[in-house]
Design a protein around this nucleic acid. Structure first.
Length: 219
DNA sequence: AACTCGGGGCA
DNA sequence: TGCCCAGAGTT
């Protein structure tokens, strides 16, 4: 496990590699952000961004999503994939917002997580980006990077990863760190081919060192 | 913990 | 063609 000094070094490297990293799902209002993040499950943000401008022109508030038949909403988001469950969840989520939250997006993680199609990760993104709630959203990238480097344990659950990150990273840097880790994971430390050969963190990386030893054994 | 949903992007 | 993707719900 990395200590705080080593983790500090990782954060600095993330910043150096991806200084411009920002949340590409930062939309104007909480409702659009919520819908965009729900749509982004198992899909790339690039794909989501292709659909949302037109979608948000047609659907302004929760009642708009309920005003059309389910099949029409499915067609409108079909390009994204997993569209059947997402369309159904969006209508259900809008119904809950109207009935229980005065047509507004709830602001706490607990209330958000109670919405259809909203899990831990989505709830944390919306709470932190839209409402400035202190939270770290752990997606597959953040989880993979944390485990590979040794910021947390390999066998940690998502919740444990989240807890560990919150204790080991200064609160003021949660948001930036999150986005930089995602860029680091997407463009450099990929799931399939981590670019260990050109990685400035190789010397302290648990997974990288393991791969290196394996290679030296073969050659 | 494993399985399913799913079209688009990319090699 | 085949494989993967800023997850969530169900069993």
């Amino acid at each position: 496990m990395l200590n705080k000094t080593q983790i500090r070094y990782c954060l600095d490297v993330f910043e150096e590699m991806f200084p411009e990293a920002e949340c590409e799902l930062t939309h104007k209002n909480p409702f659009e952000l919520l819908i965009a993040v729900v749509l982004s499950a198992q899909a790339t943000d690039v794909l989501v961004n292709k659909v949302t401008p037109e979608l948000f022109r047609k659907y302004k508030d929760p009642s708009d999503y309920l005003a059309v038949p389910l099949e029409e909403l499915e067609q409108d988001i079909k390009k994204i994939g997993l569209y059947r469950s997402k369309a159904k969840n969006i209508q259900k989520l809008c119904r809950t917002m109207i009935d229980d939250f005065n047509s507004k997006v709830p602001e706490t993680q607990n209330e958000l997580e109670g919405l259809a199609g909203v899990g831990r990760k989505t709830a944390n993104v919306v709470a932190s980006v839209a409402f400035d709630e202190p939270a770290i959203a752990v997606d597959t990238h953040v989880e993979r990077i944390s485990k590979r480097l040794g910021i947390c344990r390999y066998k940690d659950t998502v919740l444990e990863v989240e807890k560990t990150l919150m204790t080991k990273i200064p609160k003021s840097e949660w948001s930036d760190t999150h986005h930089r880790m995602i860029f680091f994971g997407r463009y450099h430390c990929k799931a399939k081919n981590p670019n260990c050969g050109e990685c400035p963190l190789l010397f302290l990386c648990r997974e990288g060192q393991k791969r290196k030893r394996k290679e030296e054994k073969i050659t």
